[in-house]
Write a protein that binds this DNA or RNA. Structure first.
Lengths: 155, 155
DNA sequence: TCACAATATTCCGCTTGCGGCATATGCCGC
DNA sequence: GCGGCATATGCCGCAAGCGGAATATTGTGA
């Protein structure tokens, strides 16, 4: 694995937040949305970028996609992930991400949903009605459809 | 210091090589040229980039510029430099860079040049007649002036 | 089969980086 | 001041990344 490619993956804040969350275990896309408070496209693209470069692996579980760090990681990746986990302690963004993640994990008691049992991922479908609500292809883009998203989730 | 900015600095191979060399102590630009075998402009720009972002410091010494890692480094920078030094052991580019650096350092016996004594840097002016030879401003750019450079130095 | 939820992909405009060329700047010795 | 060396900077073309909007794809349950 190319060292430069690793650093290229690390030089975007959203991707750093994603990787940081994955250090705590697998996650599905909808919870990335919930924790990061970023629009679906953005998250999906960054996950795609990380996957293309081998920094994460993905597995479909029903209608959800569970992302995780790869099982076996080349030395430089492992080293940089460890380094990242160290560096991240100070920045507040990452701390509150972690807090939100804990809250989500706590929500599941002993009766974890399927994805969790099978893959160690977290997903329950409770993340409904979030993100890009499609408008019947009328192509009428008024009414501020876009930006309400992030603030909506971070109450 | 912003973590993302650090990673942005790290995601170019030339800059990685520069930082790796600086882990061994201060160096002047002409020896970066000699070791890396890259044209002067390229090296100067990358050094500028690193300096703008606080990853290196520079001090003029006569007609030479001595670059070094900053005296006091924020935690995330220190951590990533250490990580870099680890990751770099395997790749051959960095190993041969280190070898060339050792050769240069060995060249100076007890009689170190001024820049070395004053700054701990390495520079002797022996790196003459290298790089962009200026052509009396005739603005006639024919005759393949550009690319002969790199191969010229790596004999 | 249909509607809908979850996620991915395509297109677009904008910005940034990179490498090369030409040229400018700073320093030194004469 | 002049010429020459060491280094930096401005300009250009090119490629890649990023975010947003729209749309496509895949799976599910009725």
């Amino acid at each position: 694995m190319d060292l430069v490619a690793i650093y290229e993956c690390l030089c975007d804040r959203t991707r750093l937040r994603i990787l940081h969350l994955l250090l705590g275990g697998p996650l599905c896309v909808c919870h990335f949305q919930e924790i990061l408070g970023e629009p679906q496209v953005k998250i999906s693209k960054h996950l795609g970028y990380l996957k293309r470069n081998g920094l994460v692996a993905a597995e479909r579980c029903g209608q959800w996609m569970i992302y995780r760090l790869p099982e076996t990681r080349p030395a430089p990746l492992e080293a940089n992930l460890a380094c990242l986990q160290d560096c991240v302690r100070e920045e507040t963004v990452f701390r509150s991400d972690a807090a939100r993640l804990r809250k989500i994990r706590a929500k599941f008691g002993p009766d974890v949903p399927v994805c969790v049992r099978e893959l160690g991922g977290v997903c329950d479908g409770a993340a409904q009605t979030r993100g890009t609500r499609r408008r019947k292809a009328t192509a009428a883009g008024r009414g501020r459809p876009g930006r309400s998203f992030a603030s909506e989730n971070l109450r």
